[in-house]
Design a binder for these strands. Structure first.
Lengths: 248, 248
DNA sequence: CCGCAACTGTATATAGCGTAAACGCACTTG
DNA sequence: CAAGTGCGTTTACGCTATATACAGTTGCGG
């Protein structure tokens, strides 16, 4: 994300762009009458950007690359999308289509919330760039994103927790999935092996500075795959929530 | 983060840069003998970049801005730092200086781990860009980062959990702090108010699509400040860990 | 003490980015 | 059929990281 060319009146521009960005996300755009037919749609553009990001990462998605995908110039996209930030927002919405149906996961809050987390996890796995895309500055939430949020909150309704508590639990679970996806996204086989080799060598040389870490590595804390990270974290969190419920 | 100019031999270059980057982080650089005295150090450069990022955000930190801070040209920095990614790594290390001392927090694993989380939280609060800086592609960990990790793992040693479990718990807590800092970093007073206004209007129009969300907002789930997010999440997680310990 | 080698900083150049502005042209509606 | 609107292009600007070539400074070995 590079800076805008003319930063003057940036605030005004941002403020006025917000509604149009929202309208775009909610599909509340009225199509024009008196001109040539548009050859593209914001959705088609977003879809192309998504496949591009899936293949080569978010950082290689540029207006130019997306435009050439359609055989048009980069500036042509600006007829459909206000700017790149809005395009990324559309990408997120595109990927979150198909809001989750948790009714098949069982009736308990725990089963449903767990299912929600696993579904979210799968989305992150399928589109690793989603993390970086949602990690940027405060973006507006589209309907699909809200639908996911709604599903999680709905799962928490039978718990008897207060609204504030339910919201916090939602944030907790969502954050856990995110942070785990983060790790996974960082994980690159070759690079990681090389890093591990060099770091372990350094650790040997400085083992007195990091006793607990050295011991943990010696005990195989990093190499053992006995624990599924997602389920482990989720079980701890949901156990903790259960404690809270029982206490009330 | 823009692309490199000449992507050829990128792999070779990356592989060969990794050790030099590590050497930089660990301060294992031997100073030269036969030239003009260096006017800068990697650490001073990183420090300037940190204050810049603290003031105006990570995305405005450019080689040029940092260089002019010292009154030198941008290219001069490349005498001390291989590239921008390495500079960011140095920034992270600079900010994580002063590894935590948890012995004052009490003797129990829970008190110590909780103290660790709060300290980490404060670092994120003081340097909001730290999130984005560590969220990028797999970076190598410097000694300070490892020291933080070591402290958390040390706090978990008296729990009786397996090494793998302790590692997972560490990841869980660290992730929780991260994801919470994420939210906080996204939070911008003005922008958020505007967003809330527009979104709530949209929610009113589509309340049937998001029943649980609408209800949650009506119940004040988002406006009430009764719960401290960090403590709430931490209490749930640590309760869950306690359950695991008791079960063993 | 001198010259070479090593080292620093600069100037220049390249490839890429997002996007503002102006323009020709195709098309649809009056 | 003419009007005029909206599409797509071309051009240009300011910004990014960084490769390369060079000029200036310093200290060691002969």
């Amino acid at each position: 994300m590079t800076r805008a060319a003319k930063p003057r009146e940036n605030k005004d521009k941002k403020a006025r762009d917000l509604p149009t960005g929202i309208a775009l996300l909610w599909g509340e755009q009225d199509q024009p009458a008196r001109g040539p037919k548009p050859s593209l749609t914001p959705q088609r553009i977003a879809q192309a950007a998504v496949t591009l990001a899936d293949a080569e990462g978010l950082e290689t998605v540029s207006m130019n690359k997306v435009a050439t995908e359609f055989g048009v110039s980069a500036m042509a996209l600006y007829r459909y999308v206000p700017g790149k930030t809005e395009l990324v927002e559309l990408m997120v919405e595109a990927v979150l289509a198909g809001p989750p149906d948790l009714s098949a996961a069982g009736s308990g809050w725990r089963a449903r919330l767990s299912a929600w987390a696993h579904l979210q996890w799968e989305v992150y796995q399928a589109h690793p760039w989603l993390l970086a895309a949602t990690a940027m500055r405060r973006q507006i939430m589209g309907p699909h994103q809200l639908a996911w949020m709604d599903a999680a909150l709905a799962a928490l309704e039978p718990t008897g927790l207060t609204a504030g508590q339910r919201h916090q639990v939602f944030l907790l679970v969502a954050g856990q999935v995110r942070s785990l996806a983060q790790q996974r996204a960082d994980f690159d086989e070759d690079h990681n092996r090389e890093w591990g080799r060099l770091t372990s060598e350094l650790l040997n040389r400085h083992s007195d500075r990091f006793p607990a870490l050295t011991k943990a590595i010696a005990d195989g804390a990093f190499t053992s795959a006995e624990l599924d990270p997602l389920d482990f974290g989720l079980d701890r969190i949901l156990d903790g929530v259960q404690v809270l419920i029982d206490r009330a």
